[in-house]
Write a protein that binds this DNA or RNA. Structure first.
Lengths: 197, 197
DNA sequence: CTACATTGTGATCGGTGTATACATTGAGGT
DNA sequence: ACCTCAATGTATACACCGATCACAATGTAG
């Protein structure tokens, strides 16, 4: 009947791709393993071969999201000046941009419900990109454009402000067109917050 | 058989109370209308008389959460000095304290999935407490302890920092004991961000 | 070519949200 | 006091979901 071979070829990738699509279009609550299998044209039990539970799929999705976020932040630093303000500006826009473009995914990434060993992998990937921010701030310190002090203690407020702003934008609390304008104010405020003296 | 009368008396309140209990203990994903009804000792369809859908119950839950948050912020201002730094400090601790004490509920409050008319009521209640922050900052401006400028544009970075810090604490990204220590740094940073000059 | 691990199938189980028709109750108007 | 009638709770049913199991088809290594 079907011309599809018995084996799909790369079912895990197909599942992740389709899952992210419906995640983006209809939110996490509309994500169903059975529906995914249906759309891909595979039996309802097939996904369980690759993701032992629905939560495992969500964890994998969050992981890819973290990886892409890290890439986006890294890419934002290409071709930008060395001044701390410029680099922070670029990173902030990349972060918030990713957040509004992947709202539901961001929720997933910072969700509380990861299994213990999943959070381990997630934590590792999270470090992979939070380290970028730490390095950015460390550079700023060496250039004398950021106040001296323990790196983490200076970075935490910066990270909180970015994350909070992204969360507000994502949850629709601030109107989407105000997001861009408000970001200028946020960055300026953060810069004042970690300026020397 | 049962000594419980046919009518419960105040089923909506019982549902909300029980829902918040399991929300706190086992998270939003473990919240089931049928289980709630079972625990209260009522038929599976009974909740639908008071909450037309599960989402409606969640919205109501989020609403009570916002109200309590507003109360907590207001209470934090009692018996605190008039200096802007002191008042912001108190409000920030109240906010973050509420967040870590009601993690799952906070997720619900700022979730993206509210029905259009529900977001209306939620937005109204949200204003009820964000106005407190605006007033706090406005007072600071009048006292010359906060930079001049449009109120919302100064408040947004403050709000973003608080919200982001609460979100980080809630999602377990920063270790719970570091939450208190880090809060000092956050408040100091925010104060520098909106200081005059 | 043959064992064997991998991957997909089909059926089944308990659980869930929602809708509908029906039963019980209490409150307001006469 | 009675009688309506809206409000509230019940019983049942439906479709869907996640998870698990035995089994079938397929690729692969020896």
């Amino acid at each position: 009947m079907t011309n599809r071979p018995y084996h799909h070829g790369d079912l895990p990738a197909a599942l992740l791709a389709r899952a992210e699509k419906t995640l983006r279009e209809r939110g996490v609550s509309a994500l169903s393993l059975r529906e995914l299998a249906r759309e891909i044209g595979v039996s309802p039990a097939a996904p369980s071969r690759h993701f032992k539970s629905k939560q495992a799929l969500l964890d994998a999705l969050a992981l890819t999201g973290l990886e892409r976020l890290a890439e986006a932040i890294a890419a934002s630093q290409e071709g930008v000046g060395e001044a701390f303000a410029d680099r922070l500006d670029a990173a902030a826009r990349a972060y918030v941009g990713f957040a509004v473009a992947n709202a539901a995914l961001l929720d997933l990434m910072f969700s509380v419900k990861h299994s213990p060993q999943a959070s381990e992998a997630l934590g590792a990937t999270a470090h992979q990109w939070s380290d970028q921010l730490l390095e950015l701030i460390g550079d700023g310190q060496r250039r004398g454009e950021v106040r001296v002090g323990p790196l983490e203690r200076i970075a935490l407020p910066v990270f909180a402000a970015l994350h909070g702003y992204a969360a507000l934008a994502v949850s629709g609390v601030l109107p989407p067109e105000a997001a861009e304008h408000g970001l200028d104010d946020l960055i300026a405020s953060v810069l004042r917050g970690c300026a020397p003296q």
